[in-house]
Design a binder for these strands. Sequence first.
DNA 1: TTGAAAGCGCTAACAG
DNA 2: CTGTTAGCGCTTTCAA
Lengths: 385, 385
Amino acid sequence: MARGAVTIIDVAQAAGVSKSAAARVLARNGSVSDKTRMKVLEAAARLGYRPNHVARAMKSGATNTIGIVVPDVALPFFSAVLRGLADTARAAGFEVLVSNTDNDADIEARSLELLAEQRVDGVVIAPVFQENPAAIVRLDREGMPIVLLDRRMPGLEHLPLVSLDHVDATERAIRSLIEGGHRRIALVTEAAQVRSTLESLTSRTSESSDLSLLRPSAQRFVGYLRALHRAGLEIDDELIIRSGYTTGDAQQAVEAFLDRDTGATALHATDAVLSSGAYRGIRACGFSIPDDLSFIGFDDEDWTTMVQPAVTVVEQPRQRLGATATTALVGIIRGGAAEPREQLLEAELVVRGSVAAASLPSHTLRCEPIRTGVSAPSPSTSGRL
Amino acid sequence: MARGAVTIIDVAQAAGVSKSAAARVLARNGSVSDKTRMKVLEAAARLGYRPNHVARAMKSGATNTIGIVVPDVALPFFSAVLRGLADTARAAGFEVLVSNTDNDADIEARSLELLAEQRVDGVVIAPVFQENPAAIVRLDREGMPIVLLDRRMPGLEHLPLVSLDHVDATERAIRSLIEGGHRRIALVTEAAQVRSTLESLTSRTSESSDLSLLRPSAQRFVGYLRALHRAGLEIDDELIIRSGYTTGDAQQAVEAFLDRDTGATALHATDAVLSSGAYRGIRACGFSIPDDLSFIGFDDEDWTTMVQPAVTVVEQPRQRLGATATTALVGIIRGGAAEPREQLLEAELVVRGSVAAASLPSHTLRCEPIRTGVSAPSPSTSGRL
DNA sequence: TTGAAAGCGCTAACAG
DNA sequence: CTGTTAGCGCTTTCAA
């Protein structure tokens, strides 16, 4: 600000015209004679004039800035979303202010407060799961354009949401396993719900209004139930592996699971964190993928193509999520138009080598931990396929 | 802005005091009676007053906002840097505006221009490599506080730089291999320089002034040369694997290299992208790590602990790079103090299982491509160890 | 301690 | 087509 600070007045003086004449030229609106335009443009270029967006914002009430509030931009998912959002925002003439919440409601509230003080024109937020999202509600009431990303919760029903179609994503993965002949398919989930709570959502077709209030993990769980249900397969609680939301938890849970004789021929983990833990667990037990067990992961992180065989995954259109959310937000800012309450993007199943057809009935296979640190020759216990 | 728009005037009226009295309370400076303070605070709370940072910036000339300009926030390195930067900035009372350049000089120039128009108080930038960084130079001349991140180039000698100590990072990796008994150590590099150009930098101790103008890749190359030099080992051009900057290139280059009989017992790739390519190349040839070849990667990406054995890597303190850059920038903004021209952070060697001691003299080992898609039982051609 | 008043740089309504 | 003028919300002298 104290910068070079060439103002519109300096330009006007140098060009020998009035402040408003210069303003008209520089803001390219209002009519001006060619001669005046020339003089002003020349003076502006010579002096190195640079419009002051702060003053402009002060006057117009629009900062041409939007905020994005996410748990952690360092997570691959959110950094990709941010990228998509930033590109779209820039193309629409907006700058982007970022905030991390670390899934802390207080930090989130504080971040929103700061963004509001900065007078951003709108906010895209992946909200922290909380009882009472008061900060968001308050901002919304005050008229701040808000678009939810990836998550909704009670109290925010009226806000537009851009999210993956979580139900469909998982359903798609499970369906592909079923089509491959798998019948006993295990699921690693961090959803807390018991099966029966979600099972009612399985049959009805368009319950998205209910579904969107569930956490993504629960929605994905529904996708699992729905896929089995539609295929006429029985749902076996034994195949549902509950895990805390850490790689370590998932690994442990999967190892414990594999140690039991469940007859599972395939396993799907419904999240990136759970996927890497599950994969580790499978390997730690000495199981060979896909010979002993087929595996489908979630999110296309780089490790999935570094291991052998490469892992079949459900991939989210991360950048597109950010871009879509931004487009929706800009629409609200510009038009005040009521955006569709929900935009669900489709996931894609990236088929690689971690899934085999299940032609033979499953047989007993137990977890046999291998000596860590030694590159494990796959036990090849089974001759399936 | 058009928001709830409770202004300081509204508060003053509600409190029955003058605008300036209210301002003094709300900006907590200037002396006010307790009674006045109470009344104002109460009114502000009741009305939901929220300071308008735009107006404040307009008046004070400080936006309390900084910009970060990087090639791509979706890359793990930059997203981690951004996280560190955002945390530090927030703690210091600054908001963060992000820009991606995709390594395009024009986009970079445009981004800087926009940030300047927004009147950010300072900029942290990982500049695009270019002949003439005019946009950065211009901003600097106009007095904009700037801190370079990770890269410097001719024309920017005077700007403070926060970077990894690239030379030391690679030197450290190579030294550890040497200490493990390796003598024929291959390097995958994207540096364009011929060996002799850099070799002169090997002996002198504190040529950092010269070194910082080299690209990170070249600096790392110097680290390689320096490590061998100091160990009194001969440098063999045959062991230097030149690669383009893509995973595919690196894989191809490594495969071609392994197809020759060079007697290498260890290999180091000086970058995350090259590392994954190199790793793929080694595996594609059917080599077993570390039995046939020891391997050290660069950057601690998630795949390095998903493969077996886990990969020993040189790890950069990414978040700390962002934090350090921000601290430096804030120092300049606040104090105008001349920051140290260069702050080089140390890398850490994370020792895992991909390095074996080289006890036996190397023997002939050729690349034997394996059938892709088949999980390769390691050939175990050699009985080393 | 308090209030009045002058802007920060820009836009826009208005008069000429 | 052009110049004058009145603010946007806030901070900060300057008097009182």
